[in-house]
Nucleic acid binder design. Sequence first.
DNA 1: CTCATGGTTCGGTCCTGATCGAATCAATCG
DNA 2: CGATTGATTCGATCAGGACCGAACCATGAG
Lengths: 230, 230
Amino acid sequence: MSEGPNIVRIAALIGDNARAEALSALMSGRALTATELADAASVTRQTMSSHLQKLLEAGLLKVSQQGRHRYFRLAGADVAYLIESMMGVAFHTTTQHPRTGPRDPALRKARICYDHLAGEMGVYVYQQMLEYGLLLQKDGALSITDQGREWFRQLGIDADEVAQSRRSFCRACLDWSERKDHLAGALGAALLSRILELGWARRVEDSRAIEFSAQGEASLRGLMRLRCTE
Amino acid sequence: MSEGPNIVRIAALIGDNARAEALSALMSGRALTATELADAASVTRQTMSSHLQKLLEAGLLKVSQQGRHRYFRLAGADVAYLIESMMGVAFHTTTQHPRTGPRDPALRKARICYDHLAGEMGVYVYQQMLEYGLLLQKDGALSITDQGREWFRQLGIDADEVAQSRRSFCRACLDWSERKDHLAGALGAALLSRILELGWARRVEDSRAIEFSAQGEASLRGLMRLRCTE
DNA sequence: CTCATGGTTCGGTCCTGATCGAATCAATCG
DNA sequence: CGATTGATTCGATCAGGACCGAACCATGAG
């Protein structure tokens, strides 16, 4: 007796090593080519080609062509959201973490979740914003307050312009490592983009980790604290 | 180049028909026996037995024994959250819905998501609560206001007593059919429990659907409106 | 134009894991 | 106690699907 959406299709697709690797790699928010994804998953190009075809057909990925290069990316935030959620379950049901390489603490500290900041830093920022009224829940969705609008402007982000985006402006996303929410949506994406632009943090090569410089982190925390004490 | 939690393990477990059926059936929040789950998945008891063993070992299920009966349930809200998220992706990536039986509209109208109300009704309630200040985002989590406390008391729920529960008191959960949040956590569970207690709605046999009576729905909407116009 | 590289298609191999019949163990009831 | 039923274990079967070599097509650079 079966009712509701058929989850086995989606799960079976993710439940293959090569495909899982590809999806995880794409959580960096970057668009990657078939060859890059094959390398990431340590399979041949032909193997990855057929896997990508399946993910495309299933609607988990989308592709754009530039000459002979085909750039694959996650189909949308809900797919990212699902992967993040599954990472959380995977993380919290593992009795030990065999793959605690040097990058694991880095991932937990700050990383890209699709297009926005996650990890301790991501959760910290979101918490502060909610705590001090920069963001507010309204109409089943997060919204930005006037105070928040001002804060973002000070950071160099025009929140109203960001709101023109056709995607979800502002929403919470459950963090796999912190088990708390961080800021997602267009606003979350704009925030990360700006942080990188300001040089407060940088992307780690071939990783989802985001590395804050000491100065960059201090700047962000300072800006946070300034707003929050007024 | 692999980093972060290994999602393939979890996905592969869900990506089997029998196991997916079992997990979906357990989204009703009920604890079911191995035999019941075997029936739900249309496999033999021995097959289901080995599947359940795997889900137990993986930490996706937990089991309690009563005599010869072993009752299985989802290990926790984060597993439910993952399944709900996957249902959302499955639902929104399916070009057509082959299984649109008579129960589908019912599921979308109101259903159980683990232990709380989901679907249109679930989203509606949550939206109203946020809109009119019964609930408030604080410290990276939802919290209840004094006004909300009063509203729940009027409904017959002592929110402070509910808060004693060791589980997450109050959080949002993304609804697969509505793509908006509904209320989850201990408070969401208490709300559904109370609605059922009041007879405003009832559980549909062998289904996750929740069926509101016309009177019950009017009562809930009325209580909602009353609070919201004050 | 040729060569290199990105990417796809085809077909054969083989490994994995779901499945169920049979058997067994455990709990419950009359 | 015997019969029934819930549940598990064992072992054999076989279907499905991941994988890659080979071949081919498409694009871009020199």
